[in-house]
Each structure stands twice: as structure tokens, then as C-alpha cells.
Write a protein that binds this DNA or RNA. Sequence first.
DNA 1: GTGTTTATCGTCAAGCAGACGACTATGATC
DNA 2: GATCATAGTCGTCTGCTTGACGATAAACAC
Lengths: 252, 252
Amino acid sequence: MPYDPSAFPPFAVTVDLVVLTVRRHALCALAVRRGEPPFQGRWALPGGFVRADEDLAQAAARELAEETGLRAHDPSVPAQDNGAHLEQLATYGDPKRDPRMRVVSVAHLALAPDLPAPRAGGDASNARWAPVEELLQQTGYGRDGEPVAPLAFDHAQIVSDGVERARSKIEYSSLATAFCPPQFTVGELRRVYEAVWGVALDPRNFHRKVTGTPGFLVPTGGTTTRQGGRPAQLFRAGGATLLNPPMLRPEV
Amino acid sequence: MPYDPSAFPPFAVTVDLVVLTVRRHALCALAVRRGEPPFQGRWALPGGFVRADEDLAQAAARELAEETGLRAHDPSVPAQDNGAHLEQLATYGDPKRDPRMRVVSVAHLALAPDLPAPRAGGDASNARWAPVEELLQQTGYGRDGEPVAPLAFDHAQIVSDGVERARSKIEYSSLATAFCPPQFTVGELRRVYEAVWGVALDPRNFHRKVTGTPGFLVPTGGTTTRQGGRPAQLFRAGGATLLNPPMLRPEV
DNA sequence: GTGTTTATCGTCAAGCAGACGACTATGATC
DNA sequence: GATCATAGTCGTCTGCTTGACGATAAACAC
């Protein structure tokens, strides 16, 4: 088939980001307020058009840096830097998902440690970390009493898919460490699991499990009391990416 | 931002299909021979452009029907029909993946029972079930002595990702039944696992595991001797989609 | 009948998970 | 400084699941 642009319909391709973090014991996603129609004034996921010479992962990393200042952690480089985990999530292409034109959005999932206040072009009021339960409830009032409008476009579905991916993936991988600072304690890691899954875990069994899994955690030698109580050993993420046997999510 | 087509670069969007089945104890993928440049004469995955009014899943289901005659099993309809399992796999958008133009391909994964001979527009010589190891080796000779050329475009990567998805997903879901006919025996299901994972499983432990997992298998009452030996009970897939605890893939 | 093939049931030991007791080491409070 | 609250860490015990494997059952081929 020769190059014939009339042979296929043109699409706009965007990347949208589900950036998750754990703040105050709650799983939160980054939301930005839309400045233009459609859905003007409503909250949405950060994202933007893929440029003509850009790979999808590059576009996602660029948007992530623009919105949060985070560098994406290239998974092909095993060196543990401070970058966020970034992976492709899914692609959304309903013909009516954007009323203006035909847009296919390649959603990406980013996991980041707790960050300073978000920025969106320097305007803090137009970006916030929102608890995912608040974003996913169709209507009602948020914790601060502000009425909650549904997310723009199909972004509620995308957030839901991203949260589900994160919830299942920390079961059988060491990805939960992506929510932690470079050095962290077993208790901090446990609170990540508790926030993402929304359950309480037994501290003793959790400690036995994570310290007993080879390659999951590497002690750095230091200790900290930043959580109060007895000083806790500090660890960094080990090289293992797959947990076998997996961490079991409690039922019900 | 008003609708300004010059504000974003136009993309072509395609769907490509990784259609897997188990034939003669080997995991096979459907490959079609390309009739036009680029990569003319080389094997590739079936696929095509997404139409202007089509959802991505619709486009994938349409391509699947065109290439194999299979109807996609809509996961929102729990009725067990004879359709194939179809799910989105990942999206590939390297700027240079198609030398003609900027193409973003939304790959889908389909799992089907063993089928009669494939067809590609009625021409059997242009479609075949190829063992995935054969497709994935970069060069060399296939089982029939025919020299093996790498798949067109980035399709080897897509097949690799699809196979890995299938291998991991049958661990913790009942998806392996998608490779089986509507009624099947425990031994047939075990041979699916063995072919997909490329390992031998203990028949006794496998039998205990699958029959002991509630909702996985439902006995139909019938028996069959089509595999030889003692008659085996026939089952159909139960309603359970998640296996807990999962089926463990042997190491090494 | 004998052998072969496949299916199915049972047994046993090792390992892991969940429940939970006990102890340790810090900071906060009186 | 004693006491308390908080968080971390080490053990123990019980039940369940797994992996290895013996034994039996029911068909077909000869």
C-alpha cells in the first residue's frame, strides 16, 4: 500500500497521566483544572498531545516532568535514582470521548513518593493531589465540603484503571517502593500498602514477609525515628522486581 | 483550546492482533504474509486501520472476525458463548516503527481454541499458525526447514508482550479456559498450561488444584475418551475469573 | 488377558500465612 | 526521672497449600 493519507482517518494522539502518590495515609492522584472548554473549570488528568517526533514513553515522561518536575525512572537503567516509576497503562479511543475531534489517548501510570505541593504552569490553584475515592465518586462533596464534579472526559475510568493496576501490581512486584523516598523503613512501606489497598496489615507478619524476601529490601545501615517510637532500620529498594511468593491482599 | 487541527500532528491509528491458540502442544500465533511494501512477503500480525466511527475494541473485534471468523466474547456478557477472549494489550508508537508515516498501533490479545485452518481473505497460503518460539527467534530455520525471517515492523516485540501477558494471566485467572473448546477435560486444560508455559505439570496436583478451586470448573456430567485412556469428566468454565490462590508457575 | 494410556484419589512432609504474645527503644508527659 | 504512648522487631503456634509420589480405575490395542 503506497502512502496515501486519504486511506485512513486522521487521529489526534495524546498521553494522559495517572500520577499516584500516598499522602496522609491516602492514595492520591494528580488532578489539574481545565482552563478551556470543553469541561472548562472541571478537574482532569494532566496530559497533552504527542509530538510528531516523539515516542509515547517520551511524551509521557515529558508531560510528567512538566507537571511535577519528576524525572521518569527509565526501567532499562537499574540504577536507583530518585525518578518516578512510569509505565503505559491503556489506550482509550471511543469516538465520542472528546467532543471536538477524534482523540486517542494513551494513558500512562506514574508512581511517585510524596511530593511538595504540585504545580501546573506555576499556578498551584490549578493542580492538586486528590484522594482517589474522591475522584471516583460520581458526585457529592469532598472532604473539605467542596462539591465534587466528575472528572472531565473519560478520566474517571482512566483513574479507576490506573488505581486497579497499582493495587494489583504491588501484590507481586516491588513496585510499592516507588511510593517511598530513597530510604524508608518497613513501617513506611507497610503504610504504603495499607493506603493503596485500604486495609490494615499486621506489622509483625508484614515485617517478616518483606525482610524475608531476598532482594526486596537492602538495609542501608542507618536508622530513623521520624515516625516516632523505637528507631527503625532504613532500607532501600533491592534489585528484585518480582515478588515470589506474592504479597497477599487480604480479602473483604 | 478551540478546535485547531494544525495544533497537533495527525496520526494513523491501527489495531494489530496477537491471536494465540494451542496446537499440537505448542503455543501458536496467527501470522499473515504481507502483500505490499514495506516488508513485502514477510510475516506480520493481522491488523488494520481504525475507522473514523469505530471504538478500538470494535476495530479489534472486526479485524478478528475478518481474519479468523471468530466472534469476540464480550466480557460484559457473562454468557459462555463460543467467542474468543479479546483484550487490549499495549500501544506502540515509535515514530519510526512504520517507514511510511506516523502510525500508532493499539495491539490486542486474543485467545482462541484450536481452530480449523486459518484464512486471510480466503487465501490459506497467506495466513498460518506459527509456534511463537519460531516467530520470536530473530533468524534461523523453522521446524519445516523453511528459513525464518523476523516479523515485519515491531511485531516481534508485540508478540513477545502478548505471550508474556498470556503466560502471566493464566496464573491468576481462569483465562486458560479460553484456549479450550466449550467442554473440556482436566487433562486438556493441563495441556494448555503446559503448552503456554512450556513446562510439564504433575497431573495429580493439577487435578487437585483446579477441581478444588470453587467456581473454576463446572462438571457437565458427560465424559469423553477423546484423549485415550480412562474416560475423563467433561467440564465447562465456571463463573470465577480470578484464581485465589493462583496457579503457580514452576520456576526454572 | 496383558500392556498402555489417561484419569482420579490419597498420603506425607515442607513451607508459608495469619493470629498473636513478648520485648525493645525512642519521645512525650507528668 | 518515672511513666506512658508509640512504633519496631523477634518468636511461637496452627492451619492450609504445595510438591513429590504411590495406588487404583477405566478405557483401548494386541
